[in-house]
Amino acid sequence: MHASEAQEPAESPAVLLQEVERLRRTTRSAGRHWWFPLTLFGVLVLLAAPLYVTVVTDDTDVITYEIVSPLVLAFGGMFATYPVATAVYWFAALIVGFVGSGLWYRRQGQRLGLRRPVLAFVVTGLALTLGLVVLQQVPFVDIPLFWLTARGTVATVVIALALLVLARLERSAALAWISVAFLGVAVLVSTYNVENLLFRMGIPSGAWAGTVAVVLPGLVLVVSGLVARSRSAAASKAPVAP
């Protein structure tokens, strides 16, 4: 039965505030889909692993002469085995990831009747992707950027920064913590040769060792995304206290 306005009893502030809190919690959990961008980007990062398998070759000039365009400088890195392929992959993967996430949110918004303000997340991600390429042509800016781009994994930093924006838009503390942790991993693999960690742990290094730089951040995203998805599914099945 639906109560009309005239029949409604005057309700106490405590009851009204409880109702506001209940609606707020229900709406936040109903429209929250950030597990999807986490999982999508995690899969895209993991798929880059074959590009990081080390190939021993005497023809080192091949690598030197391939690094010519701003795109390759931004996403290919100086130490990548296949700088051009790595740069093209990351550029395409970032666009697919951000546009795909935006379309996912839009579709879910239509289905549920709740549209979340995620446009800033998509725009931030695409702007950082394009901005990084453009900045490679700006004198004096490209030099400090080299610190992040040299290892060909700066795309993970772009993803982490955009996820921080998404955490703000979703008002999710959990996503903010995941994004900060992922940013830490992304900066680590972009500025430090993580193969050294394997060496220190006594794990024998091989041609595959370079893949740790993307497998590690990729797993962080995929595992976080899948855990978030299962928690989101459990929350949507749980009865909401009136």
Binding site: E19, V20, L114, R115, V118
Partner: peptide, 19 residues
Amino acid sequence: QRHRLGILTIAREVDRVEF
């Protein structure tokens, strides 16, 4: 008013909410 407060609370949480 309870329901108008509810409408504003839900709308505040998202970009747009459907009828």
